[in-house]
Design a protein around this nucleic acid. Sequence first.
RNA 1: GCGCCCGUAGCUCAGUCAGGACAGAGCAGCGGUUUCCUAAACCGCAGGCCGGAGGUUCGAGUCCUCCCGGGCGCACCA
Length: 548
Amino acid sequence: MYLEARARAALTGVLSALRVPSPEQIPIERPPRPEFGDLTTRISYLLAKPMRKSPEEIARTLAAKLSEHPDFEQVRAERGFVNLRFRPEVVWETLRTILKQGDAYGRQALGKGKRLQVEFVSSNPTGPLTVGHGRQAALGDVLAELFSQLGWEVTREYYLNDEGRQIDLLAQSLWARYRQALGEDQPLPEGGYQGDYLIPIGEELARSWGDRYPEWDAEAQTVFRKQAVDRMMRMIKEDLEAIGVRFDVWTREGDLHRRGLVKETLEELRRRGAVYEKDGALWMRSTQYGLARDPVLVRSDGTPTYLMVDIAYHVDKYRRGFDRVIDVQGADHAEEQKQVKLALRILGLPEEFLDYCVHQFVTLKGGEGVERMSTRAGHFIRLGDLIRELGRDVVRYFMVMRRPESHLAFDYELAKKTSMDNPVYYVQYAHTRIASIFREAEKTGELPPAFSHPTELDLSPLTDPAELALIKELDRFPDVLVQAAGFAPHLLCEYLEGVAALFHPYYARVRVLGQGRATPARLALLAGVRLVLRRGLSILGVSAPEEM
RNA sequence: GCGCCCGUAGCUCAGUCAGGACAGAGCAGCGGUUUCCUAAACCGCAGGCCGGAGGUUCGAGUCCUCCCGGGCGCACCA
Protein backbone atom coordinates (compact mmCIF):
# COMPACT_ATOMS: atom_id res chain seq x y z
CA MET A 1 0.00 0.00 0.00
CA TYR A 2 2.91 2.27 0.73
CA LEU A 3 4.41 1.68 -2.68
CA GLU A 4 1.05 1.98 -4.38
CA ALA A 5 0.52 5.35 -2.73
CA ARG A 6 3.91 6.54 -3.95
CA ALA A 7 3.14 5.38 -7.47
CA ARG A 8 -0.27 7.02 -7.38
CA ALA A 9 1.20 10.29 -6.23
CA ALA A 10 3.81 10.23 -8.97
CA LEU A 11 1.26 9.37 -11.61
CA THR A 12 -1.19 12.03 -10.50
CA GLY A 13 1.59 14.60 -10.68
CA VAL A 14 2.57 13.60 -14.17
CA LEU A 15 -1.01 13.59 -15.42
CA SER A 16 -1.61 17.11 -14.24
CA ALA A 17 1.77 18.27 -15.57
CA LEU A 18 0.77 16.91 -18.96
CA ARG A 19 -2.70 18.40 -18.50
CA VAL A 20 -4.28 15.06 -19.02
CA PRO A 21 -7.70 14.67 -17.40
CA SER A 22 -7.08 12.12 -14.71
CA PRO A 23 -9.78 9.42 -14.48
CA GLU A 24 -11.61 9.01 -11.18
CA GLN A 25 -9.58 6.00 -10.30
CA ILE A 26 -6.09 5.44 -11.54
CA PRO A 27 -5.70 1.69 -11.81
CA ILE A 28 -2.45 0.54 -10.27
CA GLU A 29 -1.87 -3.18 -10.19
CA ARG A 30 0.68 -5.85 -9.64
CA PRO A 31 1.88 -7.07 -13.00
CA PRO A 32 1.51 -10.74 -13.82
CA ARG A 33 5.24 -11.22 -14.25
CA PRO A 34 8.13 -9.80 -12.27
CA GLU A 35 9.89 -8.67 -15.44
CA PHE A 36 7.16 -6.10 -15.87
CA GLY A 37 8.25 -4.29 -12.77
CA ASP A 38 6.93 -3.76 -9.26
CA LEU A 39 3.70 -2.06 -10.23
CA THR A 40 1.94 -1.37 -13.48
CA THR A 41 -0.84 0.81 -14.74
CA ARG A 42 -3.13 0.28 -17.68
CA ILE A 43 -4.32 3.88 -17.50
CA SER A 44 -3.38 4.38 -21.14
CA TYR A 45 -6.23 2.09 -22.16
CA LEU A 46 -8.66 4.27 -20.23
CA LEU A 47 -7.28 7.46 -21.74
CA ALA A 48 -7.10 6.14 -25.29
CA LYS A 49 -10.65 7.04 -26.21
CA PRO A 50 -10.95 10.54 -24.70
CA MET A 51 -7.46 11.47 -25.93
CA ARG A 52 -7.97 9.88 -29.33
CA LYS A 53 -4.55 8.36 -29.21
CA SER A 54 -3.39 4.79 -29.06
CA PRO A 55 -2.62 3.28 -25.67
CA GLU A 56 0.94 2.67 -26.82
CA GLU A 57 1.49 6.30 -27.63
CA ILE A 58 0.01 7.52 -24.34
CA ALA A 59 2.08 4.99 -22.42
CA ARG A 60 5.25 6.23 -24.11
CA THR A 61 4.46 9.84 -23.19
CA LEU A 62 3.68 8.95 -19.58
CA ALA A 63 6.75 6.76 -19.27
CA ALA A 64 9.02 9.48 -20.60
CA LYS A 65 7.73 11.91 -18.03
CA LEU A 66 7.66 9.41 -15.17
CA SER A 67 11.23 8.32 -15.70
CA GLU A 68 12.30 11.74 -14.43
CA HIS A 69 10.64 10.96 -11.10
CA PRO A 70 13.11 10.16 -8.31
CA ASP A 71 11.12 7.17 -6.97
CA PHE A 72 11.72 4.99 -9.99
CA GLU A 73 14.73 3.09 -11.13
CA GLN A 74 13.07 2.10 -14.35
CA VAL A 75 9.91 3.13 -16.19
CA ARG A 76 8.89 1.32 -19.31
CA ALA A 77 6.07 1.58 -21.78
CA GLU A 78 5.24 -1.93 -22.90
CA ARG A 79 2.22 -2.88 -24.98
CA GLY A 80 0.29 0.08 -23.66
CA PHE A 81 1.16 -0.58 -20.05
CA VAL A 82 3.40 1.67 -18.01
CA ASN A 83 5.63 -0.53 -15.91
CA LEU A 84 7.30 0.88 -12.84
CA ARG A 85 10.27 -0.36 -10.88
CA PHE A 86 11.14 1.43 -7.65
CA ARG A 87 14.59 2.49 -6.54
CA PRO A 88 15.90 0.38 -3.64
CA GLU A 89 15.85 3.50 -1.43
CA VAL A 90 12.06 3.61 -1.73
CA VAL A 91 11.80 -0.09 -0.91
CA TRP A 92 14.00 0.29 2.15
CA GLU A 93 11.81 3.16 3.26
CA THR A 94 8.86 0.80 2.98
CA LEU A 95 10.46 -1.63 5.43
CA ARG A 96 11.23 1.20 7.81
CA THR A 97 7.60 2.33 7.88
CA ILE A 98 6.48 -1.25 8.52
CA LEU A 99 8.86 -1.73 11.42
CA LYS A 100 7.90 1.65 12.84
CA GLN A 101 4.26 0.57 13.01
CA GLY A 102 5.09 -2.69 14.73
CA ASP A 103 2.05 -4.62 15.90
CA ALA A 104 -0.20 -1.86 14.58
CA TYR A 105 0.91 -2.71 11.04
CA GLY A 106 -2.17 -3.52 8.98
CA ARG A 107 -4.63 -1.92 11.37
CA GLN A 108 -6.87 0.56 9.64
CA ALA A 109 -9.59 3.05 10.43
CA LEU A 110 -12.06 2.12 7.69
CA GLY A 111 -14.72 1.12 10.22
CA LYS A 112 -13.81 3.62 12.87
CA GLY A 113 -16.69 4.52 15.14
CA LYS A 114 -18.92 1.87 13.60
CA ARG A 115 -20.36 -1.19 15.26
CA LEU A 116 -20.54 -4.56 13.57
CA GLN A 117 -22.18 -7.74 14.70
CA VAL A 118 -21.08 -11.08 13.33
CA GLU A 119 -23.55 -13.85 14.03
CA PHE A 120 -22.23 -17.33 13.39
CA VAL A 121 -22.44 -20.99 14.32
CA SER A 122 -25.83 -20.48 16.02
CA SER A 123 -26.18 -24.22 15.89
CA ASN A 124 -29.30 -25.61 17.49
CA PRO A 125 -28.57 -27.33 20.77
CA THR A 126 -29.49 -30.75 19.41
CA GLY A 127 -26.06 -32.29 19.29
CA PRO A 128 -22.33 -31.67 19.31
CA LEU A 129 -20.76 -29.47 16.64
CA THR A 130 -19.90 -31.17 13.39
CA VAL A 131 -17.09 -30.53 10.97
CA GLY A 132 -19.50 -28.30 9.04
CA HIS A 133 -20.00 -26.05 12.04
CA GLY A 134 -16.24 -25.92 12.28
CA ARG A 135 -16.03 -24.14 8.98
CA GLN A 136 -18.57 -21.66 10.14
CA ALA A 137 -16.90 -21.15 13.49
CA ALA A 138 -13.53 -20.48 11.89
CA LEU A 139 -15.00 -18.32 9.13
CA GLY A 140 -17.06 -16.18 11.46
CA ASP A 141 -14.27 -15.76 13.95
CA VAL A 142 -11.71 -14.79 11.33
CA LEU A 143 -14.11 -12.37 9.63
CA ALA A 144 -14.86 -10.78 12.98
CA GLU A 145 -11.15 -10.39 13.65
CA LEU A 146 -10.52 -8.95 10.19
CA PHE A 147 -13.17 -6.28 10.64
CA SER A 148 -11.82 -5.52 14.04
CA GLN A 149 -8.42 -4.94 12.40
CA LEU A 150 -10.10 -2.52 10.02
CA GLY A 151 -11.33 -0.45 12.93
CA TRP A 152 -14.83 -1.78 13.50
CA GLU A 153 -16.12 -2.41 16.97
CA VAL A 154 -17.12 -6.05 16.60
CA THR A 155 -19.55 -8.20 18.56
CA ARG A 156 -19.51 -11.98 18.10
CA GLU A 157 -22.96 -13.38 18.67
CA TYR A 158 -24.53 -16.82 18.92
CA TYR A 159 -28.25 -17.23 18.44
CA LEU A 160 -29.58 -20.01 20.53
CA ASN A 161 -32.72 -21.68 19.32
CA ASP A 162 -33.72 -23.40 22.53
CA GLU A 163 -37.42 -23.75 21.87
CA GLY A 164 -39.64 -25.37 19.30
CA ARG A 165 -40.21 -28.76 17.78
CA GLN A 166 -36.64 -29.82 17.24
CA ILE A 167 -35.99 -29.38 20.93
CA ASP A 168 -39.09 -31.40 21.76
CA LEU A 169 -37.86 -34.11 19.48
CA LEU A 170 -34.45 -34.02 21.10
CA ALA A 171 -35.96 -34.18 24.58
CA GLN A 172 -38.07 -37.17 23.63
CA SER A 173 -35.06 -38.87 22.04
CA LEU A 174 -33.14 -38.37 25.25
CA TRP A 175 -36.05 -39.72 27.26
CA ALA A 176 -36.10 -42.81 25.03
CA ARG A 177 -32.36 -43.34 25.67
CA TYR A 178 -33.06 -42.98 29.36
CA ARG A 179 -35.78 -45.61 29.22
CA GLN A 180 -33.49 -47.86 27.21
CA ALA A 181 -30.83 -47.49 29.88
CA LEU A 182 -33.41 -48.77 32.35
CA GLY A 183 -33.75 -51.89 30.24
CA GLU A 184 -36.94 -50.90 28.50
CA ASP A 185 -37.47 -51.43 24.80
CA GLN A 186 -38.41 -47.80 24.15
CA PRO A 187 -37.95 -46.80 20.49
CA LEU A 188 -36.75 -43.35 19.47
CA PRO A 189 -39.54 -41.03 18.34
CA GLU A 190 -40.16 -40.77 14.64
CA GLY A 191 -37.62 -38.43 13.09
CA GLY A 192 -35.79 -38.39 16.41
CA TYR A 193 -32.11 -37.85 17.06
CA GLN A 194 -30.26 -41.08 16.46
CA GLY A 195 -26.71 -40.14 17.36
CA ASP A 196 -24.81 -42.13 19.95
CA TYR A 197 -24.11 -39.03 22.00
CA LEU A 198 -27.47 -39.24 23.77
CA ILE A 199 -26.82 -42.79 25.01
CA PRO A 200 -24.33 -42.01 27.81
CA ILE A 201 -26.46 -39.07 28.94
CA GLY A 202 -29.51 -41.33 29.08
CA GLU A 203 -27.53 -43.83 31.13
CA GLU A 204 -26.40 -41.16 33.50
CA LEU A 205 -29.94 -39.90 34.00
CA ALA A 206 -31.13 -43.44 34.58
CA ARG A 207 -28.53 -43.85 37.31
CA SER A 208 -29.43 -40.64 39.14
CA TRP A 209 -33.19 -40.63 38.58
CA GLY A 210 -34.08 -44.26 38.44
CA ASP A 211 -37.62 -44.89 37.28
CA ARG A 212 -38.92 -41.40 38.12
CA TYR A 213 -40.22 -40.64 34.58
CA PRO A 214 -41.93 -43.77 33.25
CA GLU A 215 -44.23 -41.85 30.89
CA TRP A 216 -43.63 -39.18 28.28
CA ASP A 217 -45.96 -36.73 29.98
CA ALA A 218 -45.93 -32.99 30.49
CA GLU A 219 -43.64 -33.19 33.48
CA ALA A 220 -41.13 -35.41 31.73
CA GLN A 221 -41.22 -33.09 28.76
CA THR A 222 -40.29 -30.06 30.84
CA VAL A 223 -37.55 -31.87 32.70
CA PHE A 224 -36.03 -33.56 29.68
CA ARG A 225 -36.13 -30.41 27.57
CA LYS A 226 -34.13 -28.50 30.08
CA GLN A 227 -31.78 -31.39 30.67
CA ALA A 228 -31.27 -31.96 26.95
CA VAL A 229 -30.61 -28.32 26.09
CA ASP A 230 -28.23 -27.87 29.01
CA ARG A 231 -26.24 -30.95 28.13
CA MET A 232 -26.08 -30.08 24.44
CA MET A 233 -24.96 -26.55 25.19
CA ARG A 234 -22.24 -27.88 27.43
CA MET A 235 -20.99 -30.02 24.54
CA ILE A 236 -21.17 -27.17 22.07
CA LYS A 237 -19.30 -24.82 24.36
CA GLU A 238 -16.57 -27.40 24.80
CA ASP A 239 -16.23 -27.70 21.04
CA LEU A 240 -16.15 -23.93 20.61
CA GLU A 241 -13.47 -23.67 23.22
CA ALA A 242 -11.48 -26.35 21.44
CA ILE A 243 -11.51 -24.41 18.18
CA GLY A 244 -10.78 -21.21 20.04
CA VAL A 245 -13.94 -19.20 19.48
CA ARG A 246 -15.44 -16.95 22.12
CA PHE A 247 -18.80 -15.26 21.83
CA ASP A 248 -19.57 -11.89 23.36
CA VAL A 249 -23.32 -12.30 23.34
CA TRP A 250 -25.64 -15.31 23.47
CA THR A 251 -29.19 -14.56 22.44
CA ARG A 252 -31.91 -17.08 23.27
CA GLU A 253 -35.06 -17.37 21.24
CA GLY A 254 -37.09 -17.33 24.44
CA ASP A 255 -35.81 -13.83 25.29
CA LEU A 256 -37.17 -12.44 22.03
CA HIS A 257 -40.61 -13.79 22.84
CA ARG A 258 -40.56 -12.57 26.41
CA ARG A 259 -39.70 -9.05 25.32
CA GLY A 260 -42.72 -9.05 23.03
CA LEU A 261 -40.48 -8.41 20.07
CA VAL A 262 -41.92 -11.11 17.87
CA LYS A 263 -45.47 -9.87 18.30
CA GLU A 264 -44.45 -6.29 17.78
CA THR A 265 -42.56 -7.06 14.58
CA LEU A 266 -45.47 -9.04 13.24
CA GLU A 267 -47.80 -6.12 13.94
CA GLU A 268 -45.49 -3.75 12.10
CA LEU A 269 -45.38 -6.07 9.09
CA ARG A 270 -49.14 -6.31 9.16
CA ARG A 271 -49.47 -2.53 9.42
CA ARG A 272 -47.38 -2.23 6.30
CA GLY A 273 -49.70 -4.55 4.46
CA ALA A 274 -47.21 -7.38 4.05
CA VAL A 275 -49.24 -10.01 5.90
CA TYR A 276 -52.39 -11.93 5.03
CA GLU A 277 -54.35 -14.81 6.48
CA LYS A 278 -55.00 -18.12 4.78
CA ASP A 279 -56.00 -21.52 6.17
CA GLY A 280 -55.77 -20.14 9.67
CA ALA A 281 -52.12 -19.14 9.28
CA LEU A 282 -50.44 -15.78 8.66
CA TRP A 283 -48.35 -15.42 5.50
CA MET A 284 -45.98 -12.83 4.14
CA ARG A 285 -46.68 -11.40 0.69
CA SER A 286 -43.24 -12.20 -0.66
CA THR A 287 -44.35 -13.12 -4.18
CA GLN A 288 -45.59 -9.57 -4.58
CA TYR A 289 -41.98 -8.53 -4.20
CA GLY A 290 -40.68 -11.03 -6.71
CA LEU A 291 -39.77 -13.95 -4.45
CA ALA A 292 -40.68 -17.49 -5.39
CA ARG A 293 -43.17 -18.16 -2.62
CA ASP A 294 -45.05 -16.73 0.31
CA PRO A 295 -43.76 -18.10 3.59
CA VAL A 296 -45.77 -18.72 6.73
CA LEU A 297 -45.06 -16.35 9.58
CA VAL A 298 -47.49 -17.72 12.15
CA ARG A 299 -48.79 -21.26 12.03
CA SER A 300 -52.47 -22.05 12.33
CA ASP A 301 -51.81 -23.19 15.90
CA GLY A 302 -50.69 -19.65 16.70
CA THR A 303 -46.96 -20.34 17.07
CA PRO A 304 -44.52 -18.20 15.06
CA THR A 305 -42.24 -19.89 12.54
CA TYR A 306 -38.49 -19.76 12.70
CA LEU A 307 -38.57 -17.15 9.94
CA MET A 308 -40.86 -14.87 11.92
CA VAL A 309 -38.61 -15.02 14.95
CA ASP A 310 -35.56 -14.49 12.78
CA ILE A 311 -37.04 -11.32 11.32
CA ALA A 312 -37.80 -10.01 14.79
CA TYR A 313 -34.30 -10.91 15.88
CA HIS A 314 -32.81 -8.81 13.10
CA VAL A 315 -35.03 -5.87 13.98
CA ASP A 316 -33.63 -6.24 17.47
CA LYS A 317 -30.09 -6.19 16.13
CA TYR A 318 -30.89 -2.96 14.35
CA ARG A 319 -32.34 -1.39 17.47
CA ARG A 320 -29.32 -2.40 19.45
CA GLY A 321 -27.41 0.11 17.37
CA PHE A 322 -25.30 -1.99 15.07
CA ASP A 323 -24.33 -0.23 11.86
CA ARG A 324 -23.89 -3.50 10.10
CA VAL A 325 -24.64 -7.16 10.64
CA ILE A 326 -23.01 -10.16 9.03
CA ASP A 327 -24.63 -13.57 9.34
CA VAL A 328 -22.45 -16.51 8.47
CA GLN A 329 -24.67 -19.28 7.17
CA GLY A 330 -24.62 -22.45 5.15
CA ALA A 331 -25.80 -22.51 1.55
CA ASP A 332 -28.95 -24.41 2.54
CA HIS A 333 -30.38 -21.23 4.05
CA ALA A 334 -30.43 -19.22 0.83
CA GLU A 335 -34.20 -19.09 0.61
CA GLU A 336 -34.59 -18.00 4.20
CA GLN A 337 -32.04 -15.23 3.67
CA LYS A 338 -34.03 -13.72 0.84
CA GLN A 339 -37.15 -13.72 2.97
CA VAL A 340 -35.46 -12.05 5.91
CA LYS A 341 -33.87 -9.40 3.69
CA LEU A 342 -37.22 -8.70 2.10
CA ALA A 343 -38.95 -8.37 5.46
CA LEU A 344 -36.31 -5.92 6.66
CA ARG A 345 -36.76 -3.93 3.49
CA ILE A 346 -40.50 -3.77 4.07
CA LEU A 347 -39.85 -2.65 7.63
CA GLY A 348 -37.72 0.18 6.31
CA LEU A 349 -34.28 -0.94 7.45
CA PRO A 350 -31.35 0.12 5.26
CA GLU A 351 -30.49 -2.30 2.48
CA GLU A 352 -26.82 -2.54 3.50
CA PHE A 353 -27.59 -3.32 7.13
CA LEU A 354 -27.55 -7.10 6.75
CA ASP A 355 -25.14 -9.20 4.73
CA TYR A 356 -24.95 -12.95 4.54
CA CYS A 357 -21.64 -14.68 4.23
CA VAL A 358 -22.83 -17.89 2.63
CA HIS A 359 -20.57 -20.91 2.65
CA GLN A 360 -20.79 -24.34 1.07
CA PHE A 361 -20.47 -27.58 2.94
CA VAL A 362 -17.48 -29.52 4.11
CA THR A 363 -16.74 -32.99 2.88
CA LEU A 364 -13.93 -35.20 3.93
CA LYS A 365 -11.55 -35.91 1.10
CA GLY A 366 -10.32 -39.47 0.95
CA GLY A 367 -13.05 -40.53 3.33
CA GLU A 368 -15.78 -42.96 2.36
CA GLY A 369 -17.67 -41.02 -0.24
CA VAL A 370 -18.98 -37.53 0.11
CA GLU A 371 -22.09 -38.24 2.10
CA ARG A 372 -23.68 -35.22 3.67
CA MET A 373 -23.58 -34.93 7.41
CA SER A 374 -26.78 -34.91 9.39
CA THR A 375 -27.05 -34.35 13.10
CA ARG A 376 -30.50 -35.87 13.23
CA ALA A 377 -29.48 -39.07 11.49
CA GLY A 378 -26.44 -39.30 13.73
CA HIS A 379 -24.23 -39.36 10.67
CA PHE A 380 -21.48 -36.82 11.19
CA ILE A 381 -17.93 -36.28 12.30
CA ARG A 382 -17.54 -34.37 15.52
CA LEU A 383 -15.56 -31.20 15.32
CA GLY A 384 -14.06 -31.91 18.70
CA ASP A 385 -12.66 -35.26 17.50
CA LEU A 386 -11.05 -33.61 14.49
CA ILE A 387 -9.41 -30.96 16.65
CA ARG A 388 -8.13 -33.52 19.14
CA GLU A 389 -6.53 -35.37 16.25
CA LEU A 390 -5.12 -32.50 14.21
CA GLY A 391 -4.86 -29.59 16.60
CA ARG A 392 -6.64 -26.28 16.61
CA ASP A 393 -4.18 -24.53 14.30
CA VAL A 394 -4.54 -27.00 11.46
CA VAL A 395 -8.32 -27.24 11.70
CA ARG A 396 -8.85 -23.49 11.79
CA TYR A 397 -6.48 -22.90 8.92
CA PHE A 398 -7.94 -25.62 6.72
CA MET A 399 -11.46 -24.36 7.35
CA VAL A 400 -10.74 -20.90 5.98
CA MET A 401 -8.18 -21.68 3.30
CA ARG A 402 -10.81 -21.92 0.54
CA ARG A 403 -13.31 -19.35 -0.65
CA PRO A 404 -16.47 -19.74 1.42
CA GLU A 405 -18.65 -20.34 -1.62
CA SER A 406 -16.54 -23.28 -2.77
CA HIS A 407 -17.15 -26.72 -1.42
CA LEU A 408 -14.44 -27.55 1.04
CA ALA A 409 -12.90 -30.94 0.54
CA PHE A 410 -11.10 -31.33 3.83
CA ASP A 411 -7.87 -33.12 2.96
CA TYR A 412 -7.41 -35.20 6.05
CA GLU A 413 -4.22 -36.89 4.84
CA LEU A 414 -2.58 -33.54 4.14
CA ALA A 415 -3.85 -32.06 7.41
CA LYS A 416 -2.26 -34.94 9.31
CA LYS A 417 1.18 -34.38 7.82
CA THR A 418 3.64 -32.50 9.97
CA SER A 419 5.92 -31.73 7.04
CA MET A 420 5.95 -28.49 5.15
CA ASP A 421 3.65 -30.01 2.54
CA ASN A 422 1.05 -28.96 5.03
CA PRO A 423 0.49 -25.24 4.37
CA VAL A 424 -0.04 -24.50 8.05
CA TYR A 425 3.37 -25.81 8.98
CA TYR A 426 4.89 -24.19 5.93
CA VAL A 427 3.85 -20.78 7.21
CA GLN A 428 4.52 -21.52 10.86
CA TYR A 429 7.93 -22.91 10.12
CA ALA A 430 8.95 -19.68 8.42
CA HIS A 431 8.17 -17.91 11.65
CA THR A 432 10.05 -20.50 13.66
CA ARG A 433 13.14 -20.21 11.51
CA ILE A 434 13.25 -16.47 12.01
CA ALA A 435 12.73 -16.86 15.74
CA SER A 436 15.61 -19.28 15.79
CA ILE A 437 17.91 -16.84 14.03
CA PHE A 438 17.02 -14.14 16.53
CA ARG A 439 17.75 -16.50 19.42
CA GLU A 440 21.10 -17.25 17.84
CA ALA A 441 21.78 -13.56 17.23
CA GLU A 442 21.21 -12.88 20.87
CA LYS A 443 23.79 -15.50 21.79
CA THR A 444 26.39 -14.16 19.39
CA GLY A 445 25.70 -10.59 20.45
CA GLU A 446 24.78 -9.57 16.93
CA LEU A 447 21.34 -8.39 17.84
CA PRO A 448 21.28 -4.62 17.28
CA PRO A 449 19.99 -2.53 20.20
CA ALA A 450 16.39 -3.30 19.23
CA PHE A 451 14.56 -2.07 16.21
CA SER A 452 12.77 0.63 18.09
CA HIS A 453 14.39 3.29 15.94
CA PRO A 454 13.99 1.90 12.43
CA THR A 455 14.67 5.31 10.95
CA GLU A 456 18.29 4.92 11.93
CA LEU A 457 18.73 1.50 10.39
CA ASP A 458 21.12 1.26 7.49
CA LEU A 459 19.23 -0.97 5.09
CA SER A 460 21.45 -0.37 2.08
CA PRO A 461 23.01 -3.86 2.24
CA LEU A 462 19.59 -5.23 1.23
CA THR A 463 20.29 -5.39 -2.49
CA ASP A 464 19.51 -9.02 -3.22
CA PRO A 465 16.41 -9.23 -5.45
CA ALA A 466 14.88 -11.70 -3.01
CA GLU A 467 15.27 -9.17 -0.20
CA LEU A 468 13.60 -6.43 -2.17
CA ALA A 469 10.88 -8.82 -3.31
CA LEU A 470 10.18 -9.78 0.31
CA ILE A 471 9.79 -6.16 1.37
CA LYS A 472 7.44 -5.47 -1.54
CA GLU A 473 5.38 -8.45 -0.48
CA LEU A 474 5.23 -7.25 3.13
CA ASP A 475 3.93 -3.97 1.76
CA ARG A 476 0.79 -5.73 0.53
CA PHE A 477 -0.33 -6.88 3.98
CA PRO A 478 -2.77 -4.03 4.82
CA ASP A 479 -4.37 -4.36 1.41
CA VAL A 480 -4.75 -8.12 1.81
CA LEU A 481 -6.62 -7.58 5.07
CA VAL A 482 -9.12 -5.33 3.32
CA GLN A 483 -9.63 -7.86 0.58
CA ALA A 484 -9.93 -10.75 3.01
CA ALA A 485 -12.59 -8.91 4.98
CA GLY A 486 -14.75 -9.04 1.85
CA PHE A 487 -15.82 -12.54 2.92
CA ALA A 488 -12.59 -13.97 1.51
CA PRO A 489 -10.30 -14.95 4.39
CA HIS A 490 -8.66 -17.52 2.12
CA LEU A 491 -6.78 -14.62 0.56
CA LEU A 492 -4.95 -14.12 3.83
CA CYS A 493 -3.89 -17.78 3.83
CA GLU A 494 -2.64 -17.51 0.29
CA TYR A 495 -0.80 -14.35 1.10
CA LEU A 496 0.95 -15.84 4.11
CA GLU A 497 1.93 -18.89 2.09
CA GLY A 498 3.33 -16.52 -0.50
CA VAL A 499 5.44 -14.69 2.08
CA ALA A 500 6.70 -18.01 3.41
CA ALA A 501 7.43 -19.18 -0.13
CA LEU A 502 9.66 -16.14 -0.64
CA PHE A 503 11.33 -16.53 2.72
CA HIS A 504 12.25 -20.23 2.75
CA PRO A 505 14.45 -20.18 -0.35
CA TYR A 506 16.06 -16.98 0.86
CA TYR A 507 16.80 -18.60 4.18
CA ALA A 508 18.34 -21.60 2.49
CA ARG A 509 20.56 -19.48 0.28
CA VAL A 510 21.51 -16.39 2.27
CA ARG A 511 23.22 -16.39 5.62
CA VAL A 512 22.14 -13.76 8.05
CA LEU A 513 24.52 -13.95 11.01
CA GLY A 514 28.20 -13.15 10.82
CA GLN A 515 27.86 -11.04 7.68
CA GLY A 516 29.19 -7.75 9.01
CA ARG A 517 27.21 -4.72 7.91
CA ALA A 518 24.66 -6.92 6.17
CA THR A 519 23.68 -8.70 9.37
CA PRO A 520 21.69 -5.92 11.07
CA ALA A 521 20.00 -5.05 7.77
CA ARG A 522 19.00 -8.66 7.19
CA LEU A 523 17.81 -8.97 10.77
CA ALA A 524 15.62 -5.94 10.13
CA LEU A 525 14.19 -7.61 7.06
CA LEU A 526 13.52 -10.76 9.05
CA ALA A 527 11.90 -8.71 11.79
CA GLY A 528 9.51 -7.39 9.16
CA VAL A 529 8.75 -10.87 7.83
CA ARG A 530 8.25 -12.19 11.33
CA LEU A 531 5.94 -9.30 12.15
CA VAL A 532 3.68 -9.92 9.17
CA LEU A 533 3.61 -13.69 9.72
CA ARG A 534 2.78 -13.25 13.38
CA ARG A 535 0.07 -10.69 12.66
CA GLY A 536 -1.44 -12.73 9.86
CA LEU A 537 -1.48 -15.98 11.78
CA SER A 538 -2.93 -14.27 14.81
CA ILE A 539 -5.80 -12.90 12.74
CA LEU A 540 -6.47 -16.47 11.61
CA GLY A 541 -6.39 -17.58 15.21
CA VAL A 542 -3.38 -19.76 14.48
CA SER A 543 -0.32 -19.77 16.68
CA ALA A 544 3.06 -18.48 15.57
CA PRO A 545 5.45 -20.83 17.36
CA GLU A 546 8.97 -19.88 18.41
CA GLU A 547 10.10 -23.47 17.97
CA MET A 548 8.61 -26.53 16.35
C1' G B 1 -39.76 -27.75 -13.34
C1' C B 2 -37.94 -23.02 -10.93
C1' G B 3 -34.00 -20.36 -8.00
C1' C B 4 -28.89 -19.90 -5.91
C1' C B 5 -23.67 -21.77 -5.82
C1' C B 6 -19.73 -24.55 -8.21
C1' G B 7 -17.17 -26.63 -12.91
C1' U B 8 -9.45 -23.90 -14.34
C1' A B 9 -3.08 -29.16 -14.52
C1' G B 10 -3.86 -36.43 -12.38
C1' C B 11 -5.78 -34.33 -7.19
C1' U B 12 -7.06 -29.87 -4.01
C1' C B 13 -7.69 -24.95 -5.30
C1' A B 14 -6.35 -19.26 -6.45
C1' G B 15 -7.45 -15.86 -10.33
C1' U B 16 -14.22 -14.24 -12.05
C1' C B 17 -16.85 -8.61 -7.95
C1' A B 18 -13.77 -3.49 -10.89
C1' G B 19 -12.31 -7.54 -18.87
C1' G B 20 -6.14 -6.35 -20.60
C1' A B 21 0.65 -8.57 -21.47
C1' C B 22 2.67 -15.91 -23.24
C1' A B 23 -3.30 -18.89 -17.42
C1' G B 24 -0.90 -19.46 -11.32
C1' A B 25 0.03 -22.31 -6.56
C1' G B 26 0.27 -26.62 -3.48
C1' C B 27 0.08 -31.94 -3.53
C1' A B 28 1.09 -36.27 -6.42
C1' G B 29 5.05 -37.63 -10.63
C1' C B 30 10.23 -37.31 -12.53
C1' G B 31 15.41 -35.44 -11.72
C1' G B 32 19.02 -32.91 -8.62
C1' U B 33 21.11 -30.57 -3.80
C1' U B 34 23.22 -31.47 2.79
C1' U B 35 30.98 -29.30 6.53
C1' C B 36 27.33 -23.32 7.95
C1' C B 37 21.17 -19.52 11.78
C1' U B 38 16.55 -26.82 13.01
C1' A B 39 16.81 -30.81 5.82
C1' A B 40 9.97 -30.81 9.43
C1' A B 41 14.38 -28.05 3.89
C1' C B 42 16.05 -26.08 -1.10
C1' C B 43 16.45 -26.15 -6.71
C1' G B 44 14.77 -27.88 -11.44
C1' C B 45 11.49 -30.59 -15.12
C1' A B 46 6.96 -32.05 -16.83
C1' G B 47 1.74 -31.28 -16.74
C1' G B 48 -4.09 -27.02 -18.80
C1' C B 49 -8.81 -26.50 -26.34
C1' C B 50 -9.94 -22.29 -18.10
C1' G B 51 -17.13 -27.89 -18.74
C1' G B 52 -19.32 -26.91 -24.10
C1' A B 53 -21.43 -23.55 -27.93
C1' G B 54 -22.58 -18.78 -29.42
C1' G B 55 -22.31 -13.36 -28.49
C1' U B 56 -20.32 -8.27 -26.76
C1' U B 57 -15.21 -5.98 -27.16
C1' C B 58 -9.27 -3.47 -30.09
C1' G B 59 -8.91 -7.53 -26.16
C1' A B 60 -12.84 -12.74 -22.49
C1' G B 61 -10.84 -17.74 -17.46
C1' U B 62 -13.24 -12.84 -16.22
C1' C B 63 -19.24 -9.74 -19.05
C1' C B 64 -24.21 -11.63 -21.72
C1' U B 65 -27.32 -15.92 -23.69
C1' C B 66 -28.11 -21.06 -24.20
C1' C B 67 -26.59 -26.09 -23.13
C1' C B 68 -24.08 -30.09 -20.14
C1' G B 69 -22.30 -31.94 -15.29
C1' G B 70 -22.20 -31.57 -9.63
C1' G B 71 -24.11 -29.35 -4.86
C1' C B 72 -28.06 -26.84 -2.23
C1' G B 73 -32.93 -24.99 -1.82
C1' C B 74 -38.20 -24.67 -3.35
C1' A B 75 -42.26 -27.12 4.51
C1' C B 76 -47.71 -24.37 8.92
C1' C B 77 -38.56 -27.92 9.86
C1' A B 78 -34.80 -25.16 11.89
